[in-house]
C-alpha cells in the first residue's frame, strides 16, 4: 500500500484509540448528568482520587485485586458521602447550585487525595504491554499495543452494561425520572437518595477504570485531573445524556484531532489538537446543540 495512505490509516486508528480513552472519562460525566442534570466538575478529581487511592492501597501491601475491591468500596463510600453531605441539602435547588457544589467537591477530593497519599508521582503497572504488537505491525504496518486493545474492550463492556442498566432496568427508569425533576420523582415514590448514591458510586467506579488506564501510561499524578478538559468536547458532541453517544463522540473527537494535528497542524505551528476538538464542538453547538444522541429539549413558554 502507498505509504502515505498507510500513514493516514495509522493516524486514524491512533485517533480512534485515543478517542476510546476520552470516552471512558466522559462516561462518568454522563452518568451524573443523567441523574441530576448537572455537569460534574469533580469528575477529573474523582479519576485522580480513585486511582491514587488504588495505588496507595497497593503500596500498603494489598494485592492487586484486593486493592481494586477496596477502592471500589471506597468510591461507593464517596458516593454515599456526596449524597449525604453535598446533594441532600440541595434537593430541589437550582442546577447552578449543584454545579457550584461539584466545584467545591473537586477541591475537597483533590486536597484529600494529596493529603492522605502524598504528592509523589506513582507508577501503575497493570501488567499489560504497551508496545507494538509485532504480528499486527508486520501484517499491516500499523502499530497497536495490547493496552490500546484492552482500553477499547473495557470501554465497550462498560458502555454496554450501563446502556442496559439505563434502558432496561427500574433503576435506569428512576434515574431518568430524577433527572427530569427531583420533586416530581419523589412524589411518585422514586427513592432519590438511593438513586443518587447509585449513580455517584457508578461514576466513581468508571473514574477508577479511566484513571487506571490513563495512569498506566502517564503515571498516577495530579495531571490526571486535567483529563476533564478532554471529555468536554466529547460530551458536547455526543450529548450529555447519551451513553452510546459518548463512545461515538469520543471516536469522532479522537480521530478528528489527530488528523487535524498531523495534516493541518503544521500550517499553524503545530499543537492545534488542544483546541481543534473545541472548534468541532462549537460547530455542533451551532447546528445540533443537543449533540448527536442527546435529548432534544422542548420547553413551552
Amino acid at each position: 500500500m502507498n505509504p502515505e495512505i498507510l500513514f493516514f490509516f495509522e493516524v486514524l486508528i491512533g485517533g480512534l484509540l485515543a478517542g476510546v480513552m476520552y470516552s471512558l472519562v466522559a462516561l462518568g460525566f454522563v452518568l451524573i448528568y443523567k441523574a441530576s442534570s448537572v455537569f460534574n466538575f469533580a469528575q477529573g478529581a474523582m479519576v485522580f482520587f480513585a486511582v491514587l487511592s488504588f495505588v496507595g492501597f497497593m503500596e500498603l501491601g494489598l494485592p492487586f485485586f484486593l486493592a481494586l475491591l477496596v477502592t471500589v468500596g471506597l468510591m461507593i463510600l464517596v458516593g454515599m458521602a456526596t449524597e449525604r453531605f453535598v446533594l441532600r441539602p440541595l434537593v430541589n435547588q437550582h442546577e447552578d447550585t449543584l454545579l457550584m457544589a461539584t466545584i467545591g467537591l473537586a477541591f475537597v477530593l483533590e486536597g484529600l487525595a494529596q493529603l492522605v497519599w502524598g504528592v509523589e508521582v506513582r507508577r501503575l503497572d497493570l501488567g499489560i504491554r504497551d508496545e507494538p504488537i509485532m504480528r499486527i505491525a508486520d501484517a499491516t504496518g500499523i502499530f497497536v499495543s495490547v493496552l490500546d486493545l484492552v482500553a477499547g474492550l473495557v470501554a465497550a463492556v462498560m458502555v454496554a452494561v450501563l446502556a442496559i442498566v439505563f434502558s432496561r432496568t427500574k433503576v435506569g427508569l428512576g434515574l431518568r425520572a430524577v433527572a427530569d425533576g427531583h420533586g416530581a420523582a419523589m412524589s411518585i415514590g422514586i427513592p432519590l437518595r438511593q438513586v443518587w448514591v447509585f449513580v455517584w458510586a457508578a461514576a466513581g467506579i468508571v473514574a477508577l477504570v479511566a484513571g487506571m488506564l490513563w495512569g498506566a501510561r502517564a503515571g498516577v499524578q495530579f495531571a490526571l485531573v486535567g483529563l476533564a478538559l478532554k471529555a468536554l468536547p466529547v460530551l458536547i458532541i455526543g450529548g450529555f445524556t447519551s451513553v452510546p453517544g459518548v463512545i461515538v463522540a469520543g471516536l469522532i473527537v479522537g480521530a478528528s484531532e489527530k488528523i487535524a494535528e498531523v495534516y493541518i497542524g503544521p500550517y499553524f505551528g503545530g499543537g492545534i489538537e488542544g483546541w481543534a476538538p473545541y472548534m468541532l464542538a462549537v460547530l455542533f453547538l451551532m447546528f445540533r446543540p443537543e449533540g448527536l444522541f442527546g435529548e432534544r429539549i422542548i420547553r413551552r413558554v
Partner: peptide, 17 residues
C-alpha cells in the same frame, strides 16, 4: 519542530509524526 499542547497526557499524533 513538533509541539505538544499542554497538559500533554496524549501524544499519539506527535509520535506518529
Amino acid at each position: 519542530e513538533i509541539s505538544i499542547p499542554p497538559p500533554g497526557l496524549e501524544q499519539k499524533s506527535q509520535w506518529l509524526q
